[in-house]
Write a protein that binds this DNA or RNA. Sequence first.
DNA 1: GATCCAGACTGAATCGATCCAGAAGGGCCG
DNA 2: CGGCCCTTCTGGATCGATTCAGTCTGGATC
Lengths: 351, 351
Amino acid sequence: MTSKPTLQDVATAAGVSRSTVSNAYSRPDQLSAALRTRILDTARQLGYPGPNPTARSLRRGVAGAIGVLFTSQLSYAFTDPFAVRFLAGAAGAAERRGTSLLLVPLPTDTTQARAAVENAAVDGFCVYCAADESWALDVLRARGLPFVTTAPRDDAGADPYVGIDERAAARSVADHVAALGHRRVALLAESILPGAPPGPLRLAEVGDVPHPTTRGRLAGFADALAAVGVAWTDLTLLNATDNSRAAGATAVAGTSTGDDPPTALLACSDVLALGVLDALGERAATVSVTGFDDVADAAAAGLTTVRQPAEEKGRIATELLLDPPPEPAARHVLLPTELVVRTSTRPVPRS
Amino acid sequence: MTSKPTLQDVATAAGVSRSTVSNAYSRPDQLSAALRTRILDTARQLGYPGPNPTARSLRRGVAGAIGVLFTSQLSYAFTDPFAVRFLAGAAGAAERRGTSLLLVPLPTDTTQARAAVENAAVDGFCVYCAADESWALDVLRARGLPFVTTAPRDDAGADPYVGIDERAAARSVADHVAALGHRRVALLAESILPGAPPGPLRLAEVGDVPHPTTRGRLAGFADALAAVGVAWTDLTLLNATDNSRAAGATAVAGTSTGDDPPTALLACSDVLALGVLDALGERAATVSVTGFDDVADAAAAGLTTVRQPAEEKGRIATELLLDPPPEPAARHVLLPTELVVRTSTRPVPRS
DNA sequence: GATCCAGACTGAATCGATCCAGAAGGGCCG
DNA sequence: CGGCCCTTCTGGATCGATTCAGTCTGGATC
């Protein structure tokens, strides 16, 4: 008995069968209170730490945890305030249900990343999409695991999702900027094309953007500007290499120095927009900048943005996963968004 | 075959033994390349998603995940910027090692909380202490699971920990405040006594504070003030119900209105200190306030504080867990701290 | 031609529990 | 007193893999 005792050892020591010990832990109503007490005492004496979670999982066919998948690096997820709030919401819902949250890091190597998803001992997955995730969904389907995504998908079918109307939300903030008279506009997003360098980028049409969320937002921006006569090809497209203030600052560096610089800059996330403000410094007063998400720092920075309910998104995603509603239609949730106008946008200056 | 196929099904379909299929996945060198390809093809045709992670864990005796324990509510952890940075560090280290992170929520009910720790299928635990955690450590010891705590403990023994010299760090910031001439000082901390109401609190001596981190910091504050002749009993002790800006604001409400109000307020965390600044509003210019941690918002708020390396703490905790150094001494890591003086502290005003 | 060996594959045991059909014992009822 | 049910407990099958001691085959060696 040099290693940890098992349920069998407790049974032997207590002079009962394995099943009875198991029942002592998991089904107290199946044995007399006296025997149960005796068994638990014996277990304590032996230093038995209770049923092995893994063995229990295997037999019961339930893991007691749900996975959370960030298609960007896991450690980056914690630097993104929106992702953190999403996690907070998910954690709250998981907490209420007594479920744990398994954060699965994805190696950059594709094969290893697949393996990571294949090896996760969970009952389902929350796929927080930050990049192309379809391979992950394929794995999950093959495993027969339920999952929830955080964006409407074309091939959604019965798979639950919770998201916002990205295009309409983006349009609302761009409408505001257009109404202020801006016509020379730059759009800033993360990984417009995977692997593209930071800074200006040419793209024939918005449909070419692979990442669905980014595509939706850029399309919304374009809609609003098209409505005031600004064509897609007249827009400056700026690429950021990741979703961070630094990347936002880098992406915009040098942009406002050319002749006829944009008078407004619409970013696909607050973090990028805040980076732009960092980079502009004093010049920020001459350019209108908008973000997306309404993270905590946006208010202090006076950033005009679109608010979306972050914690709510995490909470609902988790709930959809843990008990999906019977009617398929109820599995697709669109959350409301709200344009928040602050001081970072103003009418186009007369020159 | 209505449900998911198992390894046995693949074996049958391919006309080989279970072991061979297992080897095809886990030990490619044990069979010919041709057969392996054939097996994997068969598996694909059958829709076999690869070896079941739980069964594999059971047999191999390895979970491939480490648990993270917050003794406060899990969803609160995400509202604490320091905890988030700790997690980011932990995630980075886990990522590098191909390990997942299991966030285990703790129900408020003690029995259920024990069960949650007992049921976690992990190879070890990072205990991020936010409250009394000794019961959790007992469970972990009973399970024979390795763990790391984030504070020096009296009974540390060979259990690894990573922390800072709480007392010395706290003393450094209090020394600074004392040097500025402050003598009427209030100390603010979360849960000084569990369940205590927000606001002023009487406590015979600092040793009565149950939570070790808080106790260490308060003791450090007291050390510095004692050195300039201010006794423990002359200090105002303010309790906050949790670690949030709101709780900081609530705790301090009404304090500065009495006669002889404190001229300085030392908080045990930046979040609390920022809450104090929120509450003071205009009056903030007349009181010196300090925090602890140096979170992102501290710089913008001009908060004088003590910086401790958050990500580093998470990273090292995870690394100590994943490969503990052979020499016991190396398992106890003390990280450096640094006093960061900003504008929230100034000499005591002449009246 | 006998011996040895490496490589390829198999079968049974095992990981540590849960579950279910059924056995033993005791009480109640007619 | 026999039959019936109920409670309490048992034994074996099972969850889905991994592991390891072997068996078998074909080729190299002397």
